[in-house]
Amino acid sequence: MNSKTITRPVIRTKSLTKIYNGKGIPVKAIDNVDLEIKKGEFTALVGPSGSGKTTLLNMIGGLDQPTSGQVFIDEQDIYKLNNNEIIDFRLNNIGFVFQHFNLLPVLTAKENVEFVMLLQKKSKNERNKIVEWLFEEVGLTEKLNVRPNKLSGGQQQRVAVARAIASRPQFVLADEPTANLDSQSAADLLDLMTKLNKEENMTFIFSTHDQRVIDRARRIITLVDGKIYSDILQNTIKAY
């Protein structure tokens, strides 16, 4: 195993397993998965519906306890933490983008992005600097004081990405972030994530069905029946 610090895994799972006991019949949603994700990766998690993408992302994100196995983030076994510790861990280390309704409807775009930084007790100065930079990045400087219901779906997802990044996490998990977007908005969102990955070396792991999105990933992990079916690096993206 490569032990250089630049390539040390930020995420490592060990025999990760999740079994659901839905309606009497146990379902192995994730089956003994060993996986490493390194800093700066841009990874797509693909596979048919029900293959376990969401379950895997939730467990990596410290949202759902595995049935067995472990998740290490920066060598911290996250399920050894108590409830408040794991929430704080998520706040400081993991950015989330969900499929939809990411933003609080009562807060403006800016306030939504600021929210996590307020929870982190960042100073007003620091918050303002990050907000300014992020809205520049996501191209929504003129939508700063607009509430989510006045934003398009694509704009909302870009604000969600900005919020995910605002806490300066180790990585961002995005579960089908483009599922509710038209193809132009999906492409814009991918452009944004690619740019942040390149410029900021931000690590992204996203699940998707969409072939055009898959094409943009550098690493593609395919899940079938809760197991890793294939794990490949794409050369075309390597050129970046």
Binding site: N83, I87, D88, R90, L91, F96, F101, L104, S167
Partner: peptide
């Protein structure tokens, strides 16, 4: 759903 999102992104119960 919103409470779930808030908890996920780091707001304590």
């Amino acid at each position: 759903f919103e409470f779930g999102v808030l908890n996920a992104i780091g707001l304590r119960n």
